[in-house]
């Protein structure tokens, strides 16, 4: 083969090869871009899914914690209210008892005062003459008791 032909064939081959390479490179580049694009999309979608899933999980947890907290708050509120009512009732009961005690004390003191007054006022100038029938009546009323005591 002549050298020029060979040279020409080589150059045409090289040109052809170069074109093929270029076409391949372009196609590869295009496919690579598409692949990257697809991968990006997938990654984005996966990330979004993960984030959404995590957010949902946090939301669910938050909701649970919120509900628990609210339940405990309501329970505490109810307990506090019950305790307040118990204290109120106990206080009213104590006040009532103290009132009764003071009334009884006052009554007792008044009774003592009246008794002391009667004893003091009546013990002077006792008239036995006026009481003589009453004294005999007392003896008569307790005659049997007396007889039994003397008998024993």
């Amino acid at each position: 083969m002549p050298k020029e032909l060979k040279q020409q064939l080589i150059e045409e081959s090289e040109e052809e090869y170069r074109k093929i390479l270029e076409r391949s490179s372009t196609r590869l580049s295009k496919e690579l871009d598409e692949t990257v694009e697809r991968i990006n999309l997938s990654v984005k979608k996966m990330s979004a899914d993960v984030v959404t899933k995590e957010l949902k999980s946090y939301e669910h947890l938050f909701e649970q914690y919120k509900n628990n907290a609210l339940e405990e708050f309501d329970s505490s509120k109810e307990q506090t209210s019950n305790y307040q009512n118990e204290l109120k009732a106990k206080l009213l009961e104590d006040i009532e008892k103290e009132k009764e005690r003071l009334f009884a004390l006052i009554d007792n003191k008044l009774s003592d005062a009246v008794m002391a007054f009667l004893l003091e006022a009546m013990q002077h100038e006792v008239d036995l003459g006026a009481q003589s029938d009453y004294l005999l009546k007392l003896l008569e009323e307790h005659k049997e008791e007396f007889k039994q005591a003397l008998g024993s």
């Binding site: 013990q123 006792v126 009481q131 009453y134 004294l135």
Partner: peptide, 9 residues
């Protein structure tokens, strides 16, 4: 006199 009346036997 503190008996006021009646008797104690």
């Amino acid at each position: 006199s503190s008996l006021l009346g009646g008797m104690v036997v």
